[in-house]
């Protein structure tokens, strides 16, 4: 039991990128924008999905009431989804955005193959 306590106490609250991100966000006029603040913009999400999932089309919509980057809705079109069930596709997106999702309160996603995307556009 004593060992456990020591172990726990050793877990000191070290300042993390998260902390910096939040405090920076409270002062939007600050010029000291960290990479983390950039991390949860719609553009960042789009770029990451294009890069890591070879997405050919990505729509990112900030669905938070004040567009405060708290919730997002994304449409991802990638040929990497071909032959994969929905759950697996969503897991791919979740894995790609694992870091970002820690900061995002709500996240909706739609995952389509290029073929499904063409079909949906023509409807």
């Amino acid at each position: 039991m004593a060992t456990l306590l020591v172990l726990l106490l050793e877990v000191t609250p070290t300042p993390s990128r998260t902390v910096t991100g939040i405090s920076e966000k409270q002062t939007p006029s600050s010029v000291y924008y960290t990479t983390f603040d950039m991390a949860i913009t719609a553009d960042h999400i789009r770029d990451k999905l294009i890069k890591e999932l070879a997405a050919v089309h990505v729509d990112v919509e900030d669905t938070s009431p004040n567009r405060c980057a708290a919730s997002y809705k994304v449409l991802v079109v990638s040929s990497q989804f071909e032959g994969k069930p929905l759950l697996q596709r969503h897991r791919m997106v979740n894995t790609c955005l694992a870091e970002e999702l820690k900061e995002i309160h709500a996240f909706e996603q739609k995952t389509l193959t290029p073929e499904q995307w063409e079909k949906q556009k023509s409807q």
């Binding site: 726990l8 877990v11 609250p13 902390v19």
Partner: peptide, 15 residues
């Protein structure tokens, strides 16, 4: 507090 997240998760994980 924002800085609480890091270690509370660890403590929870441990016990």
């Amino acid at each position: 507090q924002a800085d609480g997240r890091v270690w509370s998760a660890s403590a929870r994980f441990l016990c």
